[in-house]
Design a protein around this nucleic acid. Structure first.
Lengths: 189, 189
DNA sequence: GATCGCATGTAAGTGGTTACATGATTTA
DNA sequence: TAAATCATGTAACCACTTACATGCGATC
């Protein structure tokens, strides 16, 4: 049981920050919470329809004169209540699935070089993500430091930074360990 | 595209460590790699059937005399090849979904106390997981330090420990931040 | 005139969980 | 004798991704 549509609450949550279209919501998620949460169009649009039918959001056909499309949604009072109810409930513990670790666990089945490559790839990806997050952090401090949400935004960003840094450190450590596994192959030239 | 049945490879990988029944595989996963990977019966049994039909594993009806059930599977040579091929492919980047951070991102919608409770709960869970992992690490060092897989097992364990520790530190930091948000409510008694 | 960004949506497929059904054997 | 553990399996359901279809307007 449990775990009912977290997309619902993502959408409601984003709409507390202001009215937005489905497209806008997608973009917002991508640009601000991408490092710990994702949503696809295939989830967002049906969710918006559903929420509208329940009166938790209200959609308005926008676009000055010409546009037939583009519906801008706003959260309603009952939408806010629904969101708050969910926010008060304890969070589900994560179900981890880390493919890299699975491959490394079976690492002895292939050559050390293969595993070293995996770790190097991981390191690059993590370093890139970390850099992106640090840019977000800087932007937040410069542009959003006086908004009520600021301390909470920084909280989530810091979590991301800390876990990226931990992963980075682990990569170096892991690479060293594997390199020591092959004490002499072409060493000493 | 991509991401074809990782259960397949989990099963094949576990079977490189010795012949096992579906039930055994489930238990092994639970007891050794639970902190970064999980599998359910609903995945394992169909996967075993499929793998057997492809000749990547071979099943033998076991159970000294009485048992009608209990099928013990062994990995075949082509199974090993298939596994190795997969192990050489680069791993898929994780798609993160951290419900706790989602709730905290929308934290201003509820009282600080609610958010503090979430963090406290998280802290407890992480501390528990960390303790369990450290027991596994100790057990590995005592009982498995001479197996060929040992360095790789320790690698994955260390990753778990490092990220748990990072999360723990973050919890304390985050709780402090939120507490500072309410500078005086009942302070000074 | 082609491609890119904006914009909404649907359909198919998949990976995975949960609940259920069944039954033997062991332990309390 | 009741419960827990061993053991296999299926069916239903769910969340989510991907690909596709459509079309407008701006830019190259």
């Amino acid at each position: 049981m449990a775990r009912g549509g977290r997309t619902r609450y993502t959408v409601l949550g984003v709409l507390t920050l202001g009215p937005r279209s489905g497209y806008d919501i997608k973009k917002f998620v991508e640009e601000s919470i991408n490092y710990f949460w994702r949503e696809s169009f295939g989830q967002i649009y049906p969710a918006l329809k559903q929420l509208a039918s329940e009166g938790l959001v209200s959609g308005e056909e926008a676009g000055s004169t010409e546009g037939p499309n583009r519906v801008v949604y706003s959260i309603t009072e009952s939408g806010r209540r629904e969101l708050r109810t969910w926010l008060r409930e304890p969070h589900e513990p994560e179900v981890p699935r880390v493919e890299l670790l699975l491959k490394l666990f079976f690492g002895p089945q292939v050559s050390p070089d293969v595993n070293l490559e995996h770790i190097a790839r991981e390191r690059d990806q993590v370093a890139e993500s970390l850099a992106a997050l640090e840019e977000i952090a800087a932007w937040l401090r410069e542009e959003r430091s006086s908004t009520p949400g600021f301390p909470y935004y920084m909280l989530t960003v810091r979590q991301g930074i800390l876990s990226y840094e931990a992963r980075l450190a682990w990569c170096d450590d892991a690479a060293r360990t594997i390199r020591n596994l092959v004490p002499a192959k072409e060493s000493g030239l």
